[in-house]
Amino acid sequence: MSIIWGLFFTPEDFVQGNSYRIIYLHVPASFLSQTLYLAMAISSITYLIWRVKLAAYLIIAIAPIGAMTTFIALISGSIWGIPTWGTWWQWDARITSTLILFIMYLGLISLHNSFSNYEKADKLLSWLVIVGAVNIPIIKKSVDWWSTLHQSASITLTDKPSIDSVMLYPLIGSIIGFFGLVICLVLLSSKYQILHREKNKSWVKDYV
C-alpha cells in the first residue's frame, strides 16, 4: 500500500523528477540488508555463547533473504544511478561496501553448504558472521568517511529528516511493510530449517 502511495500519489521531486520514486524500494531494501546482517551477528553471538540451536538455524535462515535484499538494493541503486548520476555503477565507498556485503552473504551460504556436519558448519558460520560484521559500520559511515557520489542519510534518529513529510510518510510505511514481509520470510525459512535439521525427531514426523 505504501509503495502504491509512494509511486502514484506523492508529488514529483523538484530536482530528480519521477526517478526519485525508486526510494520506496531502494531504501527499505538497503536498510533491511544491513539489519538482517546485524540479526545474523546477534544470532551468532547467541549461538556461540549460549549454544542455542535455534539461533544457529536462524543464521542460515536469514542468509538467503539477506542476499536477496542486498541484491535488490544494488539493482535498484543502479537503476536510480542512471538518471541521477549518469552511470549505473560507480566504485564509490557506499556501493562497493554494499557489494562486499552481498558477496559476504553468498560466501556464508557457500561455506555452510560445503559441510555435511551441520554443527561444525554452524560454528564456523557464526565466527565468519561475527568477523564480517565489521563491514556494517563501514557501509553506514562510508558516506561520511569518504567523498562519495552517494548522498548521506535523509532520515536519522537524531536530526530532523531532510525529506519532505509528503514523501517521508510513504517511505516509512514502505520500510515497515518490507520489514513485515522480511519477518514473514525469515519465519518461513526458519521453519524449513528447523524441520530439515530436526527431521529425525519424533515430533517432526508427527508434524509432517
Binding site: 565507498a93 562497493t96 561496501s97 562486499i100 556485503l101 558477496i103 559476504m104 560466501g107 556464508l108 557457500s110 561455506l111 560445503s114 559441510f115 564456523l124 565466527w127 565468519l128 568477523v131 564480517g132 565489521v134 563491514n135 563501514i138
Partner: peptide, 28 residues
C-alpha cells in the same frame, strides 16, 4: 589464514572466497 581455517580440508578456494570481501576495503 582465517579463510583457510574456515575451509580446512575443504580446499583453499572456498576460504579465499569467503574472506576476499574482507580484503577489499584494504585494497580501497
Amino acid at each position: 589464514v582465517l579463510g583457510n581455517a574456515l575451509s580446512l580440508n575443504k580446499g583453499s578456494v572456498l576460504g579465499a572466497l569467503v574472506t576476499m570481501p574482507l580484503a577489499l576495503p584494504v585494497l580501497i
